[in-house]
Design a protein around this nucleic acid. Structure first.
Lengths: 219, 219
DNA sequence: ATATTGAATATTGGATCCAATTTGAATATT
DNA sequence: AATATTCAAATTGGATCCAATATTCAATAT
């Protein structure tokens, strides 16, 4: 008899499921900034008790995605423009290092996948999918790097501002700009020019920062 | 009658108290790497139920200080040398930016405090206090910066390796080296030379990294 | 002796219950 | 009318209880 091995211990707990779902909802902007998160309501939605919900909320607060006040509850965290700026600056420091360490490790397989994601992003006309596709592409490129801690920190930074990036991709011509930059970045990776990829990613992030801040100022 | 105002809403919840205590114990190396954290035992120690303990453990895991496995419990997170290296590299990217942004904001008051902390660190002969004093000095210098997110991320990075730094300060001649570097850094701040402080902090961290890794290799 | 099974114990995950606090509306007060 | 006051409902924090899983160790088979 032969069975495919499967790690049952890796099964998700209720609190992990709630955590992932809330994180996704916040990142995608389905829950608005400042909107309260009621333990009872969430527990009902997932057909569970408040205990796993509270653990999930504790984790989300530790990630900076929500703010809680004793006996008052949790709300989705808002960001000042100074905070947004800082988060982009941090990404602009870390992600170039990640891509530089990734380029030498890029297999043809990873490059293929990246080309595919790049295509998909470029081709998609549905703004609702842009956020996911964009993140997908970046994660594919970074998957060749073994700077796991850098990736973790950069990922959390992205989580905090992804809502805004999604909104911004829809408005203005952020999408076309991103398209162009993605193709040059990909080309640099294909050439194996790690330093070029480094500066391109840096510019990509800092460019997104200024156009996002511009837009925030207008509203 | 006059009473000092006091924000009762800011009173710590049981889970916050447990979190802080466990974090401190892990950072200070009072709980060894790999050592299991039993919910019941901790709850008894704090005279509370397991609920706040579990929330604290959730937070600690999100901070990367512990690892948990479903139904098996939590253990203090260990670090590979590659991870240690990466954490120091991240600090070496962020902390120089923090000090550079801090220098222009340094009041005489902050500089006084920093001189005081620097003295205290230099003068202390009790290795058990070095970790705290070292952190104290750095925090004082960084307090003039308003890069709060950078400080948060760098603080968490420091949390993960502080155990090792403490051990290393005791061994070898890490303490004297740190002493010397602290005085030059402080001098740069007094002169208002932000760029110099930037590179000094960078070297300070990267130097600590290589000597720590050297020592880890020996054991 | 070693390996396997099975039951007893320990530990974690989740549900339910109670206490502390906040919220909001109805009422009272000026 | 505007402001306090009171009090019930809503909400969160924590304790206790039960279920699911892991661990240990004795009993048994090979």
């Amino acid at each position: 008899m032969k069975l495919k091995p499967m790690d049952i211990a890796a099964t998700a707990s209720a609190s992990a499921i709630v955590f992932d779902a809330l994180r996704k909802a916040i990142i995608e902007g389905q829950i608005e900034e400042g909107e309260p998160l009621r333990q009872d309501e969430i527990a009902r939605l997932f057909n569970t008790s408040r205990i796993p919900v509270r653990e999930a909320l504790s984790r989300l607060e530790e990630q900076g995605l929500i703010k809680t006040q004793r006996y008052k509850g949790a709300v989705v965290a808002g960001l000042s423009t100074a905070e947004v700026e800082e988060i982009f600056d941090l990404r602009a420091l870390l992600e170039p290092e990640i891509i530089r360490s990734a380029v030498p490790n890029m297999t043809e397989e990873i490059l293929d996948k990246a080309r595919e994601k790049c295509e998909a992003f470029s081709a998609s006309t549905d703004p609702m999918t842009w956020g996911d596709l964009n993140r997908d592409l970046h994660e594919t490129l970074y998957s060749a790097s073994n700077l796991n801690y850098f990736k973790e920190v950069a990922g959390n930074a992205l989580d905090r501002v992804e809502r805004l990036i999604r909104a911004q991709l829809v408005m203005s011509n952020g999408k076309q700009q991103a398209d162009r930059e993605h193709t040059v970045i990909l080309k640099a990776c294909e050439k194996g020019d790690a330093d070029l990829a480094h500066t391109l990613i840096r510019d990509h992030i800092l460019g997104a920062k200024v156009s996002l801040l511009d837009q925030l100022r207008q509203t």
